[in-house]
Structure formats: structure tokens, C-alpha cells
Amino acid sequence: MKNIRDVAKKANVSIATVSRVINGHDNVSEKTKKKVLKAMRDLNYRPAPSYRNTRLFKTIAILIPNLKNSHYGEIVMGVESAARENGFDLFISITSENPDMEYESIENFFERKIDGIILSEFFIEKEKLEKFQKLNIPIVIADFKDDSVFLDSVNTDNFNGAYKAMQFLYDNGHRNILHIPGPNWSPAARDRINGINEFIKNNNDVKISFTSNRGYFPNAGRIAIKNYLKDKGLNFTAIFAVNDLIAVSVIDELKRQNINVPEDVSVIGFDDSPIAEYFYPYLTTIRQFRWDIGYTAAKLLIEKILNPKSTLPRKILIPTELIIRDSVKKIN
């Protein structure tokens, strides 16, 4: 039995284009429309009637890059809770930070009939994303700040979270601080650096250093601190890691080099991931509320679905919270 994907392949167009033709949208050229209709006739494809304009499908979708740790899992749980409360089903697609997989997943959503999409850390080209916006399918961004995209978004307040981490280290006497940053592509990592720089601007007696190695996963932290110590030695009293996974791997590497935390070096993380309160020394960190990000994003999306009148995009920042445990020592 032929489906919309077969039609798209035969006509050499996207699934979204076939969907536009089937649903009578006028933003398709006459030439393309004829090509799609011919492919449908050749394949004897008869689409099921579209009810998009008369009723809801009661289904939303979320794209996430991975499920390697609890971060995206908690966001999805928040989305699912809001969806269930409002009687919506949820599709989940894991795209492995691959733009082609993201584009294919979004096209597949059209075939499956969804009412709206949540994008979390998308890597798709803006031009491709705009094609889907023109179909008037509501889209909300979760956990990926991109002001160049004219869409509703929900993010952690990474800027003030980083400022809060620096303030805590400062209040505990630390003036030489090393930051292990996240990857260049990450808006969250950039916002945390911006928060650090703002703190330095307001407190010029603090010296901040950065490792040349960066990343979000444990091996990056181990390599970063090992290389930094080899090149520059122990010229800091505290480390601010971009996330808890990096912080934990750094503490482990410091132990291997007979540098104790927090006696010799203090460490603060970001996230408050589950490991933070079970790895010794128990990690002081900045908590971000991942479930709330997902829940709020889904509520925004469902509101847009149920009330489709055009409004200016809403940019929501979820505040962070300082969680004090044992990995930061007060010094003179």
C-alpha cells in the first residue's frame, strides 16, 4: 500500500509539499502541484480525508538530540505531563544532533498528523524551518535559545545562573577561578560565559581562566583539567564547570593527581543532575528546572493550538537555584 512518502519520492519533493497539495494550501507552485498530483495518480494513492481545519488530531511531537542522561528525559516528562493533562498524545523523535534526521522527523510528523511541534536543541537550517512555519503548524523551542528564530521559546536563565555561581565562589573567598566551558554551538554554554564575564566586569579583583578543551560529557572534563594542569599548573582555587557531568569527571581527575576537593580546590557545577547528591564530595551546583521547561513549553504549544490567533513570540526564562553541598570551601 502506497503512502505519502512514496508520493514525495516519486515527485521528488518533500513530504511537507505533498501535504500542502493534499490539504489545498495555495503556497505551492502550479508546476509542483501538477507533479505531485501526477505522482498520486501513477501510484494510485488516495489520501485519507484531512480534518486539519475542522478538528484537532490531539497529538503533539517533540524532537530531542539524545537521551544519554537525565536532562532531556526530564524535559520530555514535563512535556508528557502537560500533554496528558490536556488530552493530547505525544510523539518523540531522537535526532542525534543530525540536521538531516531532524528535517526527516519533522516531515514524518506531517504524515502522522500532528497539531504542533516542540524543538529542543535543533540544528536544522533556518530556511528549512521556515518552510514548516508557513504551514501554520505551531512550533515552540525548548532549551535552545535562538533569538533569530521568530518562535515562542522556554529556556533556563543560564546568564543569571552562571552569575549566581560566580557570586557564591566570590562570597567564599575565591578570586582565581577556572571555567570549563561547554561546546561552541550551545547557546546555553555561551550564556553561561556571558554571565561569568558580566560578573568579572562588576568585580575586577577576580581573575577568570578558561580551559581550551570544552564539552558537555565527562571525558571532555577529564581531558580539559588534565591538559590545563599540565600547561599552567594549579593557578586557581576554584573550578566552575559548565555542567555536573563535567564537574564530577574533573573531581575524579583531580583525585587521581592527589588534589583534594574541596580542601585544595573547590568545584561548582550546573544542572543539579541526579549524580550531584550521590558523588562524594556532594556537589554544590546551580539547579535548572528541566521538568518545568518541558511542561511550560507544552502548555505554550497547546495554547497556540487551541487559540491560533497570531501573537508576538513569548520568550520565557525559568530561574535557577543555588544548591549548596560539600564541594566548595570557604577560604581567606
Rank of each mutant, 00 (worst) to 15 (best):
K2C: 08
K2V: 09
N3R: 11
N3K: 08
I4H: 00
I4T: 03
I4C: 03
R5I: 09
R5P: 02
D6E: 14
D6A: 11
A8Q: 03
K9H: 10
K9W: 04
K9C: 05
K10A: 13
K10I: 10
A11S: 15
A11Q: 03
A11P: 02
N12I: 05
V13Y: 06
I15W: 00
I15L: 09
I15M: 10
T17W: 02
T17Y: 03
T17F: 03
V18I: 08
R20W: 02
V21H: 02
I22W: 01
N23F: 07
N23G: 09
G24M: 14
G24L: 15
G24R: 15
H25T: 14
H25V: 11
D26F: 06
N27M: 14
N27L: 11
V28C: 11
V28D: 07
S29P: 11
S29F: 08
E30I: 08
E30S: 14
K31R: 15
T32R: 11
T32N: 13
T32L: 13
T32F: 06
K33Q: 15
K33M: 14
K34N: 14
K34H: 14
K35M: 11
V36W: 00
L37W: 07
L37V: 13
K38V: 04
K38A: 10
A39M: 10
A39R: 01
M40Y: 03
M40K: 02
R41M: 13
R41T: 11
R41H: 12
D42I: 07
D42H: 06
D42G: 12
L43S: 06
N44T: 05
N44I: 05
Y45Q: 12
Y45K: 12
R46D: 04
R46F: 07
R46N: 10
A48C: 07
A48F: 06
A48H: 13
P49S: 08
P49A: 07
S50I: 10
S50K: 14
S50M: 12
S50R: 14
Y51G: 08
R52T: 08
R52I: 10
R52E: 07
N53K: 15
N53C: 09
N53L: 13
N53D: 13
T54H: 08
L56I: 04
L56V: 03
K58G: 04
K58M: 08
K58H: 09
K58W: 05
T59Q: 13
T59S: 15
T59W: 03
I60A: 03
A61L: 07
A61Q: 02
I62P: 00
I62R: 01
I62H: 00
I62C: 02
I62Q: 00
L63T: 06
L63Q: 02
I64F: 11
I64C: 10
N66E: 12
L67Y: 09
L67S: 07
L67P: 06
K68G: 06
S70H: 12
S70F: 10
S70A: 15
H71G: 06
Y72C: 06
Y72G: 01
Y72T: 04
Y72H: 14
G73V: 09
G73Y: 04
E74W: 04
E74K: 15
M77Y: 12
M77L: 12
M77D: 15
M77K: 15
V79C: 10
V79K: 00
V79P: 01
S81P: 01
A82L: 05
A82V: 05
R84L: 09
R84N: 08
R84E: 09
R84P: 02
R84S: 05
E85Q: 13
N86I: 03
G87C: 08
G87R: 12
G87P: 09
F88V: 04
F88D: 00
F88C: 03
